[in-house]
């Protein structure tokens, strides 16, 4: 399942998508949990009883602001969350 967390507003589309099939087979020891400087990820049991990563509820409506520091302008060459997720489950839409 592709879970898209985020929103679309007048400024654009801001979604973090998580491929839960890749996430389930995590061989990165859930590195996303610690890679995100803001601790935006958590492990949840989804509706189909799979333990997968998700963006915490309190960040889902403010991704454009919360992720800004990790974008190229913040000095990062690549996103810490996507880089840490070696199965390639985490992607940003912007």
């Amino acid at each position: 399942m592709i879970a898209n967390y985020g929103y679309k507003d007048g400024a654009g589309e801001f979604y973090i998508s998580i491929d839960t099939d890749k996430c389930l087979a995590c061989d990165a020891d859930r590195a996303c949990l610690t890679a995100c400087p803001k601790g935006m990820f958590e492990i949840i049991t989804d509706d189909y009883d799979d333990e997968v990563a998700a963006v915490k509820q309190q960040f889902r409506r403010s991704l454009a602001y919360d992720c800004t520091a990790c974008k190229p302008a913040g000095g990062y060459a690549s996103l810490p969350c996507s880089s840490a997720c070696t199965p390639g489950a985490i992607k940003h839409s912007w």
């Binding site: 399942m1 592709i2 879970a3 898209n4 929103y7 509706d47 409506r61």
Partner: peptide
């Protein structure tokens, strides 16, 4: 998006406005 059994395969939600 769902499969033939109604299991979600992809979703997107907008509840900001």
């Amino acid at each position: 998006h769902c499969d033939e059994k109604g299991k979600v395969t992809n979703f997107l939600m907008n509840d900001k406005c």
